[in-house]
Simulated scan of single mutants.
Amino acid sequence: MNIRCKKPQISRDKVKKFFLGSKDKQGFGKMTIIYALLICIGFVYLYPLLYMISRSFMPLDDLLDTSVDWIPSTFYIKNYVNAAKSMNFWKTFGQSVIIAGLPTLLNVVVCSIIGYGFARYNFRGKKIMLGILIFSFILPAQVTMMPNYVWYSDLKILNSLNAFILPAALGQGLKSQIFILIFYNFFRQVPQALIEASKIDGAGHFKSFVKIALPSAAPAILVVFLFSIVWYWNESYLTQLYVCGAVSKSDWSTLVVSLKNFADSYTTQASVTGSGMVSLNESIKMSGTMLSILPLLIMYFVLQRQFVESLDRTGITGE
């Protein structure tokens, strides 16, 4: 009788472990729910990108044909050719790399030095400076936009790359406050014994920073580099205001700024005799958008593993 009573209990335990899992193994039901949520969240993020890719390869006939939804009847590459012509892609791409890359490198160098100073040295007014740093990050960019414009105009650095380089060199670049805090939190985790040991061996303050602290900060450097270059790359309004010239014309431009003026530039390019360009449609707009974000997608695809590991080590969740 006792054996017959235990059989249903054993069966229920097996079912419970199968669906809910145990301490050593995840259950089927729990994993199903987790993967279902991840698929749903992933679909929400991937749907606009997949829609954009699909539309960018469609000819005009597919756009007018209601039976064509996702898969184009033919992959029409000329949409990208026309979009690249109107955006002057290769020249604008090179300028985008310079405009985003140089301030990013300065952000990494300067913010790491400032973050190390906050993390390793105690001085009068340190807490007040950290409070001002946090407050300046919370302060909306729209509040300081016009004063900065007047200041840059007085310094005669408007409509040039110096409008981004000079603030970044002084630790006031785009989102520099959060980069300083990233380095600050990371350098606090470096064992003080290592720094003291280097000082005993005769290393000064700068050599201890370069030889001991900086090599261990590779995850923080990668996170700051990627965040900074993405923010500079995607920033269109401030780039157009300070570098590309909102009032007077400048020789500088970026892919994102060109995308903002895509309709006008495409119309101008299409009016050239013998250009072979058709009227602007949704597919060409999607092609231009894909061209503007493609470098970032490639960069993230190449560095995604290192990026995720760096986020895990620095404790940053992203934005």
Rank of each mutant, 00 (worst) to 15 (best):
1 M>A: 10
2 N>L: 00
4 R>S: 06
5 C>D: 00
7 K>N: 02
14 K>Q: 10
21 G>H: 07
25 K>M: 13
32 T>Y: 12
34 I>K: 11
34 I>N: 04
35 Y>G: 08
37 L>V: 13
40 C>T: 13
44 V>W: 13
47 Y>L: 12
49 L>D: 04
51 Y>F: 15
61 D>G: 10
64 L>S: 14
66 T>F: 08
67 S>I: 12
67 S>N: 13
68 V>L: 02
70 W>A: 08
70 W>Q: 07
81 V>D: 02
82 N>H: 15
82 N>D: 15
83 A>H: 05
83 A>L: 11
86 S>D: 03
87 M>C: 05
88 N>T: 07
89 F>G: 06
89 F>R: 06
92 T>M: 06
93 F>C: 01
94 G>E: 11
95 Q>P: 01
100 A>E: 08
101 G>E: 07
106 L>S: 06
109 V>P: 01
110 V>P: 00
115 G>C: 04
116 Y>E: 00
118 F>Y: 14
122 N>K: 15
124 R>A: 13
124 R>Y: 15
127 K>V: 08
132 I>L: 15
133 L>Q: 09
136 S>V: 13
138 I>P: 04
139 L>P: 07
146 M>D: 13
150 V>L: 15
151 W>T: 14
153 S>T: 13
153 S>P: 13
154 D>Y: 13
158 L>Y: 10
159 N>G: 04
160 S>Q: 10
162 N>G: 10
164 F>D: 08
169 A>T: 03
170 L>R: 04
171 G>R: 01
174 L>R: 06
174 L>Y: 11
175 K>L: 09
179 F>G: 02
180 I>R: 00
180 I>L: 04
181 L>A: 04
182 I>L: 10
190 V>S: 00
194 L>M: 13
195 I>V: 12
198 S>K: 02
200 I>P: 03
202 G>M: 08
204 G>F: 07
208 S>I: 05
215 P>C: 15
222 L>T: 10
222 L>P: 03
225 F>R: 03
225 F>S: 09
229 I>H: 04
231 W>L: 08
232 Y>R: 00
232 Y>Q: 01
243 V>Q: 00
244 C>T: 01
245 G>D: 00
245 G>H: 08
251 D>K: 14
253 S>G: 05
255 L>I: 01
258 S>I: 01
260 K>Y: 14
261 N>L: 09
261 N>E: 09
262 F>H: 01
263 A>R: 11
272 V>D: 10
275 S>K: 05
277 M>T: 11
278 V>N: 11
278 V>T: 15
285 K>F: 15
285 K>S: 14
285 K>H: 11
291 L>N: 05
297 L>P: 02
298 I>K: 07
311 L>C: 14
314 T>I: 08
317 T>S: 14
319 E>Q: 14
